[in-house]
Structures are given as C-alpha cells and as structure tokens.
Design a protein around this nucleic acid. Structure first.
Lengths: 218, 218
DNA sequence: CTATCTTTTGAGAGTTACTCTCATTTGAGA
DNA sequence: TCTCAAATGAGAGTAACTCTCAAAAGATAG
C-alpha cells in the first residue's frame, strides 16, 4: 500500500464506494489514520491562512500536526496535494454515470456538477472556499491543478469513454473533456475570487450555456 | 533587468516586436547572450532525449553548455522553462489582432493557429516536435503548461479583452479563453503523441469544429 | 589606448521539497 | 499472550532553486 489513503477499498467493497466509506466499521487503526489525515490538513489550512502557502514549510505543518515529516509524506504525496486532492471523484463519477446515456454529455456534466456543488456547499463550504481561494492565489497550485492523473479532465474522459463503451477515447472525447474541465475549473475559481458571494449555480449554468452555444456570441 | 532575456525591447522599438528582433543590430553582448541561450537549450534537449528529462540535472545541463548553474537560472527561471517558454506569443497576438474584429473569436483563433503552426512546421518542426513530445511525456511539464502567466489561456484572454475594448475581461471571456486554450493544447499534444505523423491542420480543424458545434454530437 | 561604468558571470552557502532505508512502535488476530 | 503486519520516526541524501558578493568582460567617454 503506497500512500495509505484511508480511501482504499476493502476486499468486500459494495458497489457504491461512497456508501462503502460511510458504513464501513472502521477499525482503530483506520480511525487513527483518518484522524491523522484530518489533523494534518486542518493544521496546514490554518497555517496557510495565517502566514501564506509558500512560507509554510512541510516541516512546520508536520510539527503542528505532531507527526514526523516522513509521516506527512506518507499521507500526502506532495505539499500541493494537501489542497488539491479531494475525495469527491467517486461521487462525481457515480453522478455522471447515473445520467441517461443518450443525454448530451454537456447536460450530464451540468447536472452532475450542480448536484455535487450543492452538496459540498452544505457540508464543506468553508473548506471548499479555502481550497479554491488558495488555488486562485498560489500559482504553484494552479499549475498542479492540471496534473495528468486524478485531474477533472481525466475524470470526464474516463466517463466519456465508458459511456461510449469503447476501450480507447477518441480525439473528440479528449478535446471535450479538456474543454469542459477547463471551463468548470474557471467557474469554481471565479466563485472563490469573488469571495464566495456569487451564486455558484448561476456560474455553472452560464459556463455550460457558453460551451453549448459554440461560443457564438463571443 | 531581471531575467535578461534578449527579447527585451530597445528604447527605439519599432511597432512590430517580431520585426524588431530580426532587424536589430545586435551588439556583441547581445549576440553572446543569444548564443548562450541557444547553447543551453540545445544541450538540454540533447540530454533530455538521450537520458530523459527527470534524470538530467540542471547542473549537468550547465556543465554541457559550459556555464555555471547560476548563469543557467539567469537565462531560464526554472528547468521547465527550457521546454515551455517560447518566443511565439507576440506573433500569435499579432495574428489574432489582425483578424476582423467582428469575426467570431473561434474562427479568428482557428485561422491564427493554422497560420502560426504552418510557419512553425516549416522552420522549427524538429524543435516543436521535441518540445511537444516532452510535454506529453513528462507530468511536471504538462502541469507547468497551465501556469497562469504567459500561458495560452492568458494570451487568448488578453486578445479577447482588447478586442472588446474593455479593461477587465468578463466571466464569459474567461471561460472562452480557458476552453480554447485547453482544446488547442490537446491538438498539439495529440500530434506529438502520434509521433508527428498526423496532419496537424486537420486536428486543429476538428478541434474548432467541436468547440463551435457546442459538443452537440458527444 | 586608457580609465571608468555597467552588465554579466561564477563561486559558494543556504533553503526546502521530496526520497530511501532501517529500526522501533503499535494495532490486529490467533 | 504471542506473532505478524502495518505505521511511524530518525536520519541521510538529492536536486531545484535563491541570495550575496566579488571578479570578469563589454560599452563608452576622453
């Protein structure tokens, strides 16, 4: 087990991974790991807001969370992962695959995004905002947002490919995934840049309207 | 003068910066700088292809180019910049601004891209291919491609804003720039992933057709 | 050609994110 | 309680940068 994420599916995983996480009878070990992970992240966010991302060292974060730097890197592969990694991918994939397969993909995405964001705003609004604000403000994070693996683009592409029932994505699927990912990232960043005041559902709608219109008005 | 790029405009700069660079009577100093820059880049590309990007250190590159590591960082802010920085931005901006202002922006981009790529293929095909191949293969480069400043997205956004004759870009402009930048990057990456065999003009056309169609078929 | 001024360079020390290895601790299960 | 596997910490190492300062080299005026 490499980065020992508590997300790792147990051998008898039910069909829905999100549900699995919720109902899993966590062992002491797993509870401790989850707690450590949360502590590290919480302390990190606290220090980031207090003294900035760049001038907070991993060593300081580890000290604040009362773990060794070694342990820090066992929980988060990079410092950027503290901000960029999330646990919403399975939910997003499930939401996307739940839409009718003959629906235009753009519409599926709009609906899934709207759902997911709605949930996030209710439960983790504060954290979501902190994360998005950091991403808008720290160039290193903005860049890392587009790393190949586990990026939104990969997520969209995976779903597109599976929906089409083929092995390898076509070029058109790639472009579609890239464009949608970039556009939706823009929506979240705009929301954060605005201080979280703007109506994010409205932003998402405008984004997908633009994509669907073929940028006719621009 | 911070990174001492030989691109720095002389006090009596003509209107067209590209032209300026070509006709400028380079002083000895400037000629040496240009040569150093080229040598560093050439040696770097050679070593990257021989032994890979990650296992080539800046120290090795500097040694091969017969400069000190200090000097390396005076010419390229980061190792990634060796691959990512280019000198085509002014040409692209000029090409975009040369299109009729009432033309749909998507069409302006398609035409400008086609032009620029055509020129690049004639003059620097080998280098362009090496760069794109590196970007497809090295995750760190792929990530850095989306850094806020000097990214294609910023370029498109700048032009869009100026064309509209406003100070601040609207949200719709942001999304448009993001989507077009992501999609065109995909075209170049696909071309490189294919070994440069595929017809890149065709790829660009397919990309913009998709963007213009509102992803109707997907 | 020389003296002066400015730009460019190299040397070296320091920081920090990460990697690897190995011994120790701690929870799980019999 | 004993044994095994997983988790942790300590420590050494690497490499990409950053900063400072003195030396070298091109530009310029006399």
């Amino acid at each position: 087990m490499t980065p020992q994420q508590p997300t790792a599916a147990p051998p008898d995983a039910p069909t829905n991974p999100v549900q699995a996480m919720l109902e899993a009878p966590l062992s002491l070990r797993e509870r401790k790991k989850l707690k450590t992970r949360q502590t590290i992240r919480r302390e990190a966010y606290r220090m980031f807001t207090e003294q900035g991302y760049d001038s907070t060292t991993v060593e300081q974060i580890a000290a604040a969370a009362e773990v060794s730097p070694s342990t820090f890197f066992r929980y988060f592969a990079t410092k950027e992962d503290l901000v960029l990694s999330d646990e919403y991918d399975p939910a997003m994939i499930a939401a996307l695959l739940a839409r009718p397969a003959d629906e235009p993909f753009l519409e599926s995405c709009r609906a899934a995004m709207a759902d997911l964001i709605h949930q996030l705003l209710r439960h983790d609004r504060e954290e979501l905002f902190t994360r998005m604000r950091l991403i808008t403000e720290v160039p290193a994070l903005r860049a890392a947002l587009y790393r190949s693996s586990s990026s939104p683009q990969e997520l969209f592409l995976t779903v597109l490919t599976r929906r089409a029932g083929v092995e390898e994505p076509t070029y058109e699927m790639r472009v579609t995934a890239a464009a949608i990912a970039a556009a939706t990232a823009e929506a979240l960043l705009q929301w954060a840049a605005d201080g979280g005041r703007e109506d994010i559902a409205g932003l998402v709608d405008r984004t997908f309207a633009l994509l669907g219109s073929g940028f006719a008005g621009v």
